[in-house]
Structure formats: structure tokens, C-alpha cells
Write a protein that binds this DNA or RNA. Structure first.
Lengths: 190, 190
DNA sequence: CCTATCATGTAATCCGTTACATGATTAT
DNA sequence: ATAATCATGTAACGGATTACATGATAGG
């Protein structure tokens, strides 16, 4: 990442520093891991590699702790704030990506055995139910707090998405010939 | 891509060849562009680079057209079919990713001006409505056909997801202080 | 015949992950 | 004191996009 281009990870880091204050790479990883990683995850190395680059560009400052681990604490500069504002004004045109191996397998399930498809449906229902449960717990913890800006609103979106996914997978039925159909919502109880 | 590892793009190509028959790289790009690119998109170069690699591994065969453009037509081998079956049996554990810049901006909207957030909401509602319309048209064209395997079922999922997104963005209201809230479904008419 | 578009491919670059390596702190 | 875990960083690799370059075909 040598060129002076700003990517999603750049804005994630600047956004996290701007909304939640100065942080070390590890802090950033934690903050993102508990929040937007529910949608979009980043490897821990990016939180160590990207901030120094943003410092070079004048968008962040770096301060080493005086004692102990002498960790590198990063903070956003006024120039960085401006970069985030400019980003906000850019039209948001890039299409969303939904990268889900379960969907891919379902799409290409023509030559799979019915029992394989049924197994896929079971595990995918379970996976998405588990995410729903996590987010529901999160909402109970953070949903009422007034001091954390607009961040909890994305929990709502995660819940809506999760409900749609569970509803979808749960509504699927496999015929003997391997053909998959959706059944009406009323009859999704087994 | 030198190592003999199979990635999502490998299975996308093998799956498309298996479900829809032999194809050139360009054909593959088209097939995917009209279907699973609604969820997960791939650059055109991948459809030219990956098949030769799969041929080396014995998973595809390549045949050059005798006349005209002498295009490279790829087909899946029995070994390739087996690789797809093995993949189907692997547990599908990787978490889904929802990479959406609109969500990212909303998450980090604390320091944005109310009018900027309102503009974001407007454009995101429009973007997701447009995708819904495309998929609705697609369902009308393909939904009833019995000769295209289980592929139309993912259109249903795209519609469910799109409805959730439109419902979400449409339900948001921005307070004067920049705080964003959801309103109940009944009152989402302006 | 000319032009626009369709189609094909490669090379360079960029970006993200994985693997590696190690130090610091906490709990027992 | 020791083990477990928390935390930090870098290097190498792999994978995906972008840019470049060009040929083929169809429509006027």
C-alpha cells in the first residue's frame, strides 16, 4: 500500500479514531471487531500497516507511550477529519458485495444430492441464527445508550439482514429430484 | 495464482461449466454477470487467468475453436466434477461478508451534517430500490422455467435482502443534532 | 469501408492475508 | 516462577484489480 490512495480500510481507521478517539492498532482491531466486522472484516495486520501510512499523509498523528509497552497511539488530525468529510460527500456508487459461500453452493446445487442440499440448509440456518443471537444480545447491551452516536443503528440493519437470511434458508424445501423450492411463511414450522 | 489451491473463483468457474455447459472466458463472465454477480462480483481478468490454471490441474479441458476467433472453450472434467462435489461436502464455515460503503458511512456518521446523512439515506434507498427492480424483472423472466436448475432460487434471496435494505434505509430519520433513528414500519410514508 | 462495440489477453501494480517472530502482562 | 494469553509487528506470498494493448465482428 504505497500509493496515496484512500481505501475502505483507511476510512474505517479514520472513522474509528474520529468517532471513538485515539487508539493503538490493537484498540482499533477490537473496536472494529465488535462492530462493523459483523459486516466487513479486516485482518489484524491492516491495523498495523495502514496507520503509519496515514501519518505520512498527514491524516493521523502518532505518539509513543512513555512507559511499558510504548505502544503507538494514533489520533486523527484536522486534515484527516477533512478527508473523512470529503469521503462522506462523495457519491456512494460502488455496489454492495454479499460474499457468502452458502449462497454460492445453493446456486450451483444442481448436481448435488438432496441430502447434501438439506445439510447445507440446516447448517446455514444455524449459522445465521447464531449471528442473530449475537446481535440481539448486542442490542440489549448497547441499544439504549445515548453516548455512542449513530453506531447502534447498524445493529438494527444486521438484525434485519439476519432475519431475512434465516427466513430464507428456513423456508427452503428439497424435492426428491434435488429441486429446491421456497414454501410460504406460514408453513415453515417443521 | 501459482499454487494449486481452489478459491471461490475456481468453484464459480467450475460450477458454471458444470451447471451450464462448456464456455469461453467471455461466456463465463456473462453468465456470472447476470447471476451471482448480484451478490459477489469478479473482475473479467479472472475469467481469463483462472481456467488455464484449472486445466493444468486436470479439472478442466480446453479446446480451441477451429475457425474465426479461435476462442478457447473450456469444459469441466470428471476430476473437476469430483472437486465440486468435495467442495459441496466441506463444512461452510467462513462468515459472510457484506461490503457496503453506505453502511460504513452510516456507522461513522457522528460528525456528519444532518443534510449529508439525509442525502446518504436518499441515495442508498434509491440504489437498493434499483437493484430490487432489476431482480423483480429477472424473476418474471426466469422464475417459472423448469430447465435452469436451482439457480432462480437465489433471485428470491436477492429480493429478500433488497427488501430488507430498502425497508431499513427508508425507515431512518435524522434529528436536528445528527442522531439517526428508525421509525416504525407504518409511518415510513413521507 | 468505416466505426463502434464486442471480445481477448497480458502485465503491472496494488492490496490483503498468512505465516512468522517475539515481547509484555496476568493469573495461578 | 511459569504458563497462558494478550499484544505487536514484519515479511512474504497470493490473489484481485487496473491498465494497457489489440483483434474480430456487426451495423451503417
Amino acid at each position: 500500500m504505497t500509493k496515496e490512495r484512500l481505501n475502505p480500510i483507511s476510512y474505517v481507521i479514520m472513522g474509528a479514531l474520529s468517532s471513538m478517539g485515539p487508539a493503538t492498532p490493537y484498540d482499533l482491531k477490537q473496536r472494529i471487531g465488535e462492530t462493523i466486522a459483523y459486516f466487513w472484516s479486516f485482518s489484524h495486520a491492516q491495523f498495523y500497516e495502514e496507520p503509519p501510512r496515514l501519518v505520512e499523509m498527514g491524516l493521523l498523528t502518532e505518539q509513543k507511550e512513555a512507559f511499558g509497552r510504548r505502544r503507538r497511539v494514533f489520533a486523527i488530525t484536522e486534515l484527516g477529519q477533512q478527508a473523512v468529510r470529503d469521503w462522506y460527500d462523495e457519491p456512494t456508487t460502488a455496489r454492495r458485495e454479499i460474499r457468502d459461500l452458502g449462497i454460492l453452493k445453493l446456486f450451483f446445487s444442481d448436481h448435488a444430492e438432496p441430502h447434501q442440499i438439506e445439510e447445507l440448509i440446516r447448517t446455514q440456518t444455524a449459522v445465521h441464527t447464531a449471528i442473530l443471537d449475537e446481535l440481539t444480545a448486542k442490542r440489549e447491551r448497547y441499544g439504549e445508550r445515548e453516548d455512542i452516536g449513530n453506531r447502534p443503528i447498524t445493529i438494527e440493519l444486521g438484525l434485519l439482514f439476519g432475519q431475512a437470511m434465516v427466513e430464507f434458508w428456513h423456508s427452503l424445501r428439497v424435492r426428491e429430484d434435488g429441486r429446491v423450492h421456497r414454501v410460504a411463511k406460514e408453513s415453515t414450522n417443521e
